[in-house]
Design a protein around this nucleic acid. Sequence first.
DNA 1: AAGAGTAGATTAAACGTTTAACCAAATTCA
DNA 2: TGAATTTGGTTAAACGTTTAATCTACTCTT
Lengths: 349, 349
Amino acid sequence: MEEDRYIVKKGNVTIKEIAFDAKVSIATVSMILNNKDKKISEATRNRVLEIAKDLNYIPNTMARSLITRQTKTIGLIMPDITNPFFPEIARGAEDKASQSHYSIIYCNTDDNIGREDQYINTLTEKMVDGIILAHSSDREESSYGLNRNRVPIVLIDRDFSFPNIVGKVLVNNKDASFKGVNYLLEKGYEKIVYIAGPMTTQTAKDRLDGYKMALSERGVEYRDNYVKIGDYKAQWGELAVKEFLNEGISFDSIFCGNDLIAIGAIKALKNAGMQVPEDVGIIGFDDIYMASMMDPELTTIRQPNYEMGFRAAELLINEINDRSENIEKGNMDVKKIILETELIIRKSS
Amino acid sequence: MEEDRYIVKKGNVTIKEIAFDAKVSIATVSMILNNKDKKISEATRNRVLEIAKDLNYIPNTMARSLITRQTKTIGLIMPDITNPFFPEIARGAEDKASQSHYSIIYCNTDDNIGREDQYINTLTEKMVDGIILAHSSDREESSYGLNRNRVPIVLIDRDFSFPNIVGKVLVNNKDASFKGVNYLLEKGYEKIVYIAGPMTTQTAKDRLDGYKMALSERGVEYRDNYVKIGDYKAQWGELAVKEFLNEGISFDSIFCGNDLIAIGAIKALKNAGMQVPEDVGIIGFDDIYMASMMDPELTTIRQPNYEMGFRAAELLINEINDRSENIEKGNMDVKKIILETELIIRKSS
DNA sequence: AAGAGTAGATTAAACGTTTAACCAAATTCA
DNA sequence: TGAATTTGGTTAAACGTTTAATCTACTCTT
């Protein structure tokens, strides 16, 4: 009795056994279990339900999916789950998915296009109903992985041109970084350097544009040697500051591509004996949870991380449902959701 | 031509079509595609392979899984993906999984037993081949979710008694916290308070034991009002310090249940005008990436986060393979892997 | 009282694979 | 030369569902 629970039963309870016990056909059982039982009497209905429960019936999703062509699963591909920005997105996506009875297969690409392509293929094979994709930084025009894909994709955070895109959830990065740099300018900072992420993402390009725009609007000259391009990690922030210092470039504030970079930058600054915000003002991007825990607390541009994930999942799931309802609807326009950013003023500038 | 890529084809290429084109039986195609082609001539082999490629064939995993009873997917259930400790574990698990051609379905329970049970059921329905589980803090003896489970489980980080456990990947928490508290003692700290996580996890109990043991070994009296129990979040660390301060309890150092708590504690201390480590020494637990980015850099007890995930996945996958090879092997003993912790001395104590 | 409806089911095909069992033709062996 | 073996496959069942089409026995209409 007790031991039973530890034994892996060879075959599991199927609809067939229920049908046998209840002395009805398997079709009847299936209909009852799926609430398509308009025409089933209360009596058999209850009998079947009871037996199913007694037998501890668990439906076999494989068999079902084979017919329905839906797996109730979506893939979530992210570049770096170790950057707190992405788990926060994941949480949003997962909450929405779970509400709608979807599961999420999560994939971490390490910002590597090879892994990304491979994941797209694997997910396609696993017949996920859709994919939420924050593409890796080094994605080039087209590649093997794409061609095999046949699954609807919602792009998140990073814009890109791609087959099978049905939606995008983005933020106005240009506007956001404009706000940030503008704030620095207003605060009286004049020599604003920019430690950027990889310029292969549209995100990064837009942020650079915003930076330039803010400067030019105030008549501050843009200088090439004021911007350094790297990746989105704290280590890069640390390194970049050291480089600026070594190169003897004088600056009074740093606009950072994300909060992680900002955190690294602050560390390097402190190590060099400089005070934030007195000697150097810092502004980050993302508003990850840690931003408010730093010393000084980080001024940053908030993205609605959780909401981005949630909305992306929502958009995707709606699209999936639309498609399955009306296969020939052929609604080819991609839905674009642009979320608001917000300047969060704390202590670092 | 170009447009084809954007169109969701109604039916996809199947093994059947390949067989038709190649003028062989579907069995032959199947064998070739699965490298079970000992008895197939090079000629047909190449022909089939070529056609499969031309047709851009993607195998249907559902159909396959239905027969093989393997999905090549494992579930990863974690309490809080927003705590950097867990993404680091997830990375390890994912890397191993991906090496062995497994995918991971990730689930976040929010430390809520209801969600956890629900996920276990969903994963079982999705026929994952196994589950890696860091159980939620509020799990009680037994519950609905468990009874339905028929999937091998590897426990990670938090020990527990559970049906279908095939392995555990843990750390000697008692020993680890002993090391930490002992270090504080050696450093000359005398009034060590302990801000703990939820005492429902074995992890937390063991750490408390280690704390007590270190004290008693040095002849320092254990005091009940020196330990506060909460959750594993930075906010709790902040709050707990405020409470200690309000209660007028004097202390010269804090042993924290994890790094997040430590980070919150440092913040509260600074707000109260106290210096770390001069006025109060701090030691954390986990060694998350952020620990080295704090000011002061956090002294902490390192857990091999990435490795824990990796080893857990490894253990699980091996077990899955063993089972499917030799169904009656009946190897019921759970494999236990205890990983080493390490005291990382930085600046906070 | 005959025809039309309806309630409550059942039948059987289909989904796309895998795999054990079988088979025909060609080759080898005694 | 005839039996045995090997080569290179094929057949058909099975996995567990869903669902469109069908069926039977009643109950209403008129």
